[in-house]
Design a protein around this nucleic acid. Sequence first.
DNA 1: GCAAAAATTTAAAACGTTTGCAATTTCAAA
DNA 2: TTTGAAATTGCAAACGTTTTAAATTTTTGC
Lengths: 347, 347
Amino acid sequence: MPVRVTTLKELAANLGLSITTVSRALAGHQQIALKTRERVAQAARQVGYVPNTAARTLVSGRSGFVGLVLPIRGPNLIDSFLGEFVTGLGEGLVAHGADLILATVPQDQAELAVLRHVVESGRADGVVVTRISEVDERLAYLRRRSFPFVAHGRLLDNDFDYNWLDTDGAHAFGEAFDMLYDLGHRHFGLVTISEPMTFRHLRQDGLAAAIARRGDPSVRLDVATAPRFDRGARIQAVNRMLQGSDRPTAVIALFDELALTVLEEAARAGLTVPRDLSVIGFDNVLASAYAPPGLTTFDASIRHCAREIADLLLTVIAEKPAAPLTRLIRPTLVSRASHGPAPRTRS
Amino acid sequence: MPVRVTTLKELAANLGLSITTVSRALAGHQQIALKTRERVAQAARQVGYVPNTAARTLVSGRSGFVGLVLPIRGPNLIDSFLGEFVTGLGEGLVAHGADLILATVPQDQAELAVLRHVVESGRADGVVVTRISEVDERLAYLRRRSFPFVAHGRLLDNDFDYNWLDTDGAHAFGEAFDMLYDLGHRHFGLVTISEPMTFRHLRQDGLAAAIARRGDPSVRLDVATAPRFDRGARIQAVNRMLQGSDRPTAVIALFDELALTVLEEAARAGLTVPRDLSVIGFDNVLASAYAPPGLTTFDASIRHCAREIADLLLTVIAEKPAAPLTRLIRPTLVSRASHGPAPRTRS
DNA sequence: GCAAAAATTTAAAACGTTTGCAATTTCAAA
DNA sequence: TTTGAAATTGCAAACGTTTTAAATTTTTGC
């Protein structure tokens, strides 16, 4: 049972050396005699010495932490996004000896206030910002403060330089359209949300661009919109879209949660997927594999993205690159059974 | 645009006061004149002063952080457990001004080493330990070190005193058995894992106890076991159980992931659920609602448990109670369509 | 108007580490 | 041996906060 030595002072006393020497020896400085370095390392290992983070942070100005601000979501956290994201970040960070701080936003506080607190308290050397909205005060604050950060997602404003990693939703939605068009579909539906998140625009624009590329005037697009967390309104909007004989033959949903609602409501309305209706989602949540008949969707590999984000952020922190670092990740199509040829019976 | 004041020293200089006074004023000490306290608070608000965490931690010995060690899971993080757990912890912590540190375990390191590092570096005031195994060196270490912690789950050894919160899986499995017995089932199957996690024993024992309580010698129980992350072996084990005419009429799975496999394999084997086979899971993952015909399962409300764990841990940290704090949470049955009366045609 | 008590403020040490600079030791050459 | 340079080690300050103990100012009672 080793003596419990916690501090450098005690370790130094045990070895008959000064604090300075021990500190330098552990840091591997060449100026310390090799024999001494080895002796110190051995003693440190034996007593299980771990440097105090607070003291080290205070003097070095680096905490070794990366922050993530976590807004409290609605009561039903429907998918595994957060778990995958956090796992990916952790994997990316730990490879460089960094760790993650999760700062939850209290009910009555603004997310920006929590972000400010994380930054100003010096708890973290950099932060990850998710769920980018059209006008994002967090990014504005961080840039003004010139604090290292990486955004998961993009602003629409391209004049604003910053580090980001994003999923190429525009490309995915274009790919979905092309595939469905080639299957004969001409009447499309888009199920989307009303919140001002930028990924909504990007995906929607990708779809519009793909439609424009075809230059086929017979292509039609209906849009159903509902608030992100209002399940009732969403169901209503979807039903309105599926009602009547002049309904779309193919529906693209902004993300799987919406697509699953489409599948449910289609079944309830007596429509068979994909015979009467093709449905395509985005995210590849676990349930999409189990919901009959199996949802065709896109996988954005959140975990991998998060790992990349961690890498980017650590680079930003260490090297302060002049030009912003950016990555656009192309999602992969997961082809299941919810899409097929357009029904013949209707135009 | 306020002058950027970051330190207490600068703030004090601005106000013409000593550091001591400003520090005390911000802490709300009565000994500082009310007028001064207000003046300081106002100035601090104006310049957006946030105390430096490292300095505060160093002198006070309290970091305001709670640690969670995160082992890297297999590539398919199947459910939303981690996201819910982390969200719940965050909610519980932030109510008391604490935050969460996520320490990921690198590939080549042991979880215990990371835990030790978190504890010895003084990064956290307490830790949450999950996935308790039969012989758990982490709990042994923490107790030896007398470091505040709360376990999510229990040891089998009742002589070991510690703070825990657990889901009453034993009760749930008893409830599942009783319900199925009353529906006429006599031949049961249990699908379980081979890892030495204690929840496996607890649930299994709960089932055994319920069977014993009936005292009906005609009750039979088949057990299929496979490693947690070996999908192939699991499918094989399940198929072996479902093979032949002398198969169970009701299968209880240790958790939903296994139950979903049972549903899939049953369908593949031409069995109709619940006509030919009843299936009950545990966890209520999202997919269980979508997998036909809808999996009957138990909801352990992870998020709520995590919130409670945070509360417990903060109490342990603040008050160091003499007797261990414990909570047993009873999961609720989520009755869907995967269970029904035992088939008549067979004994 | 003065002494004592009460109210308010402050100087200085401490937390455990890193680091600039100075001091000491070692060693080879003379 | 002595000397100077090279190698090695150590002193002390600094990081930003909290806190003990002491100093200062204000108030009160007579």
